[in-house]
């Protein structure tokens, strides 16, 4: 289980997280929603230890994220970054197999390549894509490669940072369905951050709404349309009228 308790984080004078408390159960798919700049990405980066919180505790299965054995800790995670974050100096298959080509999970090159191609196939890409470079791929293909990289080492926990940003509605639907299928198939714990409501409906078991640095509402995905919280209502309906200021 991932547990965040009273997490605070400020960048200079800007207080981003103000006592964030959230729990994600093992095998659950939790989607964190919220407006731009509310701290969703910072929340994920705090869990991964990429950003150090000013206050509060974050644990994964009871183990603090500040553990000394960072490699073993990070080996449990896979992450799909918003822009893909593919390494443009190496071909697609080496991106996907990055973790399998070095470090504790290192495999022979041929085996790593085979796994990469299998994962590419799993996300709907043909094997001939393996030899291309990221700059030769469309945005949708880059997201799929990013997804293949995130699942290549069979992680227990997968993070998805704005998985559908910049994609057309059809490709967004494809990516959402893929994420749902893969998370279910692998039995992984998933945390997704998005402001795309179609992603929420496709991916989430549980939804948490982040506003003003804290969790404003959380509950089962099935309840987001009936919940009475005015902030959630405004966000779900996309209305300019409501407690959330349109100009922030």
């Amino acid at each position: 289980m991932i547990a965040l308790s009273d997490v605070h984080k400020a960048f200079g004078a800007k207080q981003v997280l103000r006592g964030l408390t959230l729990q994600v159960a093992k095998g659950e798919s939790c989607v964190i929603i919220g407006g731009s700049g509310t701290g969703k990405s910072v929340c994920l980066k705090c869990i991964l230890g990429l950003v150090t919180p000013d206050r509060g505790t974050i644990t994964v299965d009871g183990q603090s994220v500040t553990t000394r054995d960072r490699d073993a800790f990070l080996a449990r995670f896979g992450m799909l970054f918003q822009g893909g974050a593919l390494f443009d100096s190496m071909p697609v298959w080496q991106n996907v197999a990055f973790r399998l080509l070095r470090g504790a999970q290192k495999r022979p090159k041929a085996e790593a390549r085979e796994i990469a191609i299998e994962k590419l196939r799993r996300v709907g890409l043909m094997p001939d894509v393996a030899e291309l470079y990221p700059s030769e791929l469309s945005g949708g293909m880059q997201k799929r490669v990013g997804l293949a990289r995130a699942i290549a080492a069979e992680p227990e926990i997968i993070f998805f940072d704005e998985p559908t940003t910049g994609l057309d509605p059809i490709m967004s639907g494809v990516i959402n369905d893929l994420i749902r299928e893969i998370v279910t198939e692998m039995g992984a714990t998933a945390v997704t951050i998005t402001h795309d409501m179609s992603s929420v409906r496709a991916i989430a078991d549980k939804v948490a709404m982040l506003h003003d640095g804290t969790i404003r509402w959380h509950g089962p995905a099935a309840e987001i349309d009936t919940a009475e919280d005015p902030y959630l209502r405004q966000f779900v309906t996309g209305s300019a009228e409501g407690p959330i200021e349109a100009v922030r």
């Binding site: 990429l50 992450m79 974050a85 990055f98 504790a104």
Partner: peptide
Amino acid sequence: TMKVTEQIDALVTLST
């Protein structure tokens, strides 16, 4: 460029 496109963060999450 790797930093602004989150490739450095990606390296860290890949235990590198």
